[in-house]
């Protein structure tokens, strides 16, 4: 059963420094919590580039291509109707729906893809056990790290030495 060590910092600079120090110690399940995105957090945590743009591109292309093929098949092949002398396969007339479906697929993929990447919905998380952690969405700057039980105390001590205002250890009940 893992332990979450949760620590509050007074300012962004010591928070990011602490994250860098713990990462140098070899901790891998580090995270920062803040009411706004912090400059430099990606670098401090060593995060790779988000894959969201790539999956959005693929989804958008799938949406557009399938939208076009759908129209081509439905009014060009399955049931051709002569409207105003336009040929059954009329590419200019198919552009609006193709475009809209490309956008729709990309947007739905971004939205649900984000939830997948976030591991949300997850209404309960061990860090919420710390009552003071409520400030993370208001003005608090927090660091959390998941460690093995025997490392929890040394990590807490290390965070205190790095300037944490308060440190708490929570058991991961999940």
């Amino acid at each position: 059963m893992k332990r979450y060590v949760v620590a509050e910092f007074a300012a962004e600079a010591p928070l990011l420094d602490a994250a860098r120090a713990l990462r140098a110690d070899g901790q891998t399940e580090l995270d920062l919590h803040s009411p706004v995105p912090l400059h430099g957090s990606d670098e401090a945590l060593g995060l790779k580039r988000s894959i969201i743009p790539r999956i959005a591109l693929v989804a958008g292309l799938i949406g557009a291509v399938s939208g076009y093929v759908m129209q081509w098949y439905l009014v060009g092949i399955a049931w051709p109707i002569n409207v105003g002398g336009r040929p059954p396969h009329s590419p200019p007339a198919f552009i609006p729906v193709t475009f809209e479906l490309g956008i729709l697929f990309a947007a739905l993929t971004i939205f649900f893809g984000l939830f997948k990447l976030w591991g949300m919905p997850r209404l309960h998380h061990p860090v919420f056990e710390v009552e003071a952690f409520r400030s993370a969405s208001v003005d608090g700057l927090w660091l959390s790290t998941a460690v093995a039980p025997e490392v929890a105390e040394p990590t807490a001590a290390r965070l205190r030495s790095l300037g944490a205002l308060q440190v708490e250890i929570v058991e991961d009940a999940s």
Partner: peptide, 24 residues
């Protein structure tokens, strides 16, 4: 809120996703 905890790992994807939504 679906369990949002202001995580830096989440913000990273969020910012890009938000910008892309604007782009769309």
């Amino acid at each position: 809120a679906f369990g949002w905890r202001g995580s830096a790992r989440h913000w990273q994807h969020y910012r890009i996703g938000y910008l892309l939504m604007a782009g769309l």
